[in-house]
Amino acid sequence: MKIAIPVCGNRVSTVFDAAEELLMIENNPGAAPVQSRTFWREDTLIARAARIRELGAQVLICGALSEVVKRMLEAAGIRVIPFIRGTADEVFEAFCKGKLSRERFFLPGCAPCEGQGEHHRRHRGHCKTGGKGRP
């Protein structure tokens, strides 16, 4: 599974559009997660969304994201978890453990999406959060 996290430094970028880099984490069962960072040159929202699709991300975990882009990514089959805050490390770990729906990971006033906690738990076990490859 490929997870995309737009970041500013080591934090999830507060606004999707303003992120300078895109952290990609390839996370396969039984293997250590492999991460890579790319500078985000695309300046328009739609071009950024297209880049995430091209990179083969199946999940996008990001900060504030406009609804229209969220729907567009979802239409392309990408699971979107917006309005997340925290460091990339703790967010990825929480995602793997099915704990991303905890309130502290959400930007103030931005409630978790419907059914999110349940969906996270389904992915538990696919992650190996220890080892060198961990972001």
Partner: peptide
């Protein structure tokens, strides 16, 4: 404040 306002300029 950046987590509440969520403006494009907050980080840069």
């Amino acid at each position: 404040c950046r987590d509440v306002l969520k403006a494009e300029i907050c980080e840069k």
